[in-house]
């Protein structure tokens, strides 16, 4: 190998095993609780059988996405220990990821715009996408004994 780990000079962080263990337990509880809340919201949407307004559905989905980002933060900051690294190192990793902000907004906007334009200028496509399939077909699939 070009270099050997033993020759490296890195300073060990202050290390307290008990405190670290406590932190892990705390983060585990937080992640579990967030996941349970996400699932509760998912079940709420499912059990409402479309009785919630579209605004409410969008709101619930938005909350779920925010909770998702919170989970991502806890995993990266504590499990992957990024929070305890030097600030410059954190910046070299987090700043490039800011590209995602543009990436997500631009592409989802583009997709939505494509849908609207196609519905406006291609009436045949819109018509086709509104034809409902006989419900029976789906019902028989659900009762298919092999569907296990």
């Amino acid at each position: 190998m070009h270099q050997d780990d033993n020759t490296e000079i890195t300073f060990h962080h202050e290390y307290d095993r008990e405190a670290s263990k406590k932190e892990v337990i705390k983060i585990t509880v937080i992640l579990s609780v967030i996941t349970l809340v996400e699932l509760a919201l998912g079940f709420w949407m499912y059990l409402s059988h479309g009785n919630l307004g579209s605004f409410m559905i969008t709101l619930i989905k938005g909350v779920i996405l925010i909770l998702m980002l919170a989970k991502a933060f806890y995993i990266v900051a504590y499990f992957m220990h990024l929070k305890h690294e030097l600030k410059n190192m954190i910046m070299t990793i987090v700043v490039p990821l800011l590209l995602f902000v543009w990436f997500i907004i631009a592409f989802l906007y583009e997709g939505n715009s494509y849908k609207n334009l196609k519905n406006t200028y291609d009436p045949y496509h819109k018509e086709q996408s509104e034809i409902k399939v006989e419900k029976k077909e789906q019902g028989s699939k659900e009762h298919d004994p092999q569907a296990h």
Binding site: H2, E8, F11, N88, T92
Partner: peptide
């Protein structure tokens, strides 16, 4: 030895930093 010439700039070992960049 490029990395061992002084202290590592982010005070982590080379392999760990590269793992971070791979994950990015």
């Amino acid at each position: 030895k490029w990395w061992s010439g002084g202290k590592s700039p982010f005070n982590v070992e080379y392999g760990k930093l590269m793992m971070w960049y791979f994950l990015m």
